[in-house]
Amino acid sequence: MNHETATAAELAADHDFIQWVKYPTQESMLYWSQFAEQYPDKAQEMAEARRLVLLLSQEQADDHSFDEEAQLVWEQLQEAMQQDRDRGPDGGRVFSIWGYPLKTWLSAAAVITLLLASAALLFTRQSAEPVTYATAYGEKRIIQLSDKSVIVLNANSSITIPENWEKDKPRTVQLRGEAFFSVTQQANRQQFIVTTSKGTKINVLGTEFNVYDRGQEDRVVLTSGKVRLSATQNGATRQMEMQPGDLVTVSAASGFSHRRVDPDLYTAWQHNKVYFDDYTLREVGALIEEQYGYKVEFSGKELPGQRITAFLEVKNPEDILNTLAETFELQITQQENTIYISSL
């Protein structure tokens, strides 16, 4: 296809264009940014084509019913395989799942949680370039790496992973935004290093932890295992070892600051829950901006400094806004992409 003469619809149907929108690589980003520079009059078509691709890719991403259904069928399949084994090589009939007694159902329910965590795993792709995975506003993604480590990427975030890790060098990934890591321990105690956009390095053996790289500071919460943080500020590198339950913030202004927390609260976003830990409304607004792509404007001087502590189930930004409106008696209106918040 000749990209220079393509309409928005043609671009949106073009395989290379779709790959760039959905799974950008360094190579495709280079190609399309050069293209945009060279053909500035194509900007409108490109923007519209991009929106069309995102729209067409839309599935009910937060609809876990398929994962649950997959689990139910799996239980059933296991039964069928077992009966087949008992019966010998000639057996093998498929039973409908719905005729099963309650007990089977309960045991199925118990395994669902385990499966959900792994059902959306992606095979890491085979290519020579480093691969970048990105999430849109309001989207989450689970990525399994070749070493069986798992990364859960929160909304509006991206992670870059090299294609191949050498056996005797640290495994390194670059994060922008927020992600939860479950890192496998390798036999040769190969290190795993997460680098944030602000240059903080999180050095890991085998462990689970959450990294938040937005706004002014990096925030690392350790669920289990052991990590070593290092950050270079004003030319000096500082290091710190973390224990499970530690929350450490790293900022240019105040360096490391440490406190003890319940890590579950900080990783709850994976399950569509959000924990406001003595947040100001300004911070809540920033979260809505980062994760859902809105602009949030407060009126009045005191309002943005008001504080809230809450643990909410959140499917969309309205769930947060409704709670704020009730707690602080606010009027919340929306015009196009901007949310205006004022006192009643």
Partner: peptide, 30 residues
């Protein structure tokens, strides 16, 4: 675990009969 969810989603685009989709998924893997 990797492929069943997308197969269910795909089945859902082809038919509204959820039980049929489940039976077929099980049959394919069996």
């Amino acid at each position: 675990r990797h492929f069943a969810p997308i197969m269910l989603r795909y089945g859902n685009r082809i038919t509204t009969d959820k039980e049929l989709i489940r039976d077929c998924l099980q049959q394919v893997f069996f």
